[in-house]
């Protein structure tokens, strides 16, 4: 099922399929957020934004607007 990181629930995992490159920072790619990589949503901040994820062995917080740009298939 195709969706974005923004639609994951806490504890759910997915594999990154596609990234809207023009709308996300290169830094995120450089941290290893790349197609084919597993991503897990660890926590959502109390006000539903930002999202706390694990990707490529890194623990990151990104805003929802960025998470919506990363398409994944749910595991």
């Amino acid at each position: 099922m195709k969706t974005t990181i923004a639609n994951l629930k806490v504890g759910e995992k997915g594999v990154i399929e596609d990234i809207a490159l023009e709308n996300i920072p290169l830094t995120l790619l450089e941290m290893g957020c790349l197609p084919g990589i597993d991503v897990e949503l660890l926590q959502i901040a109390p006000l539903k934004d930002p999202l706390y994820i694990r990707v490529n062995g890194s623990y990151l917080a990104i805003r929802k607007e960025t998470a919506q740009q990363i398409t994944i298939s749910k595991l």
Partner: peptide
Amino acid sequence: SFFVIEMP
């Protein structure tokens, strides 16, 4: 503003 922070 691109917000990406590491959670060390």
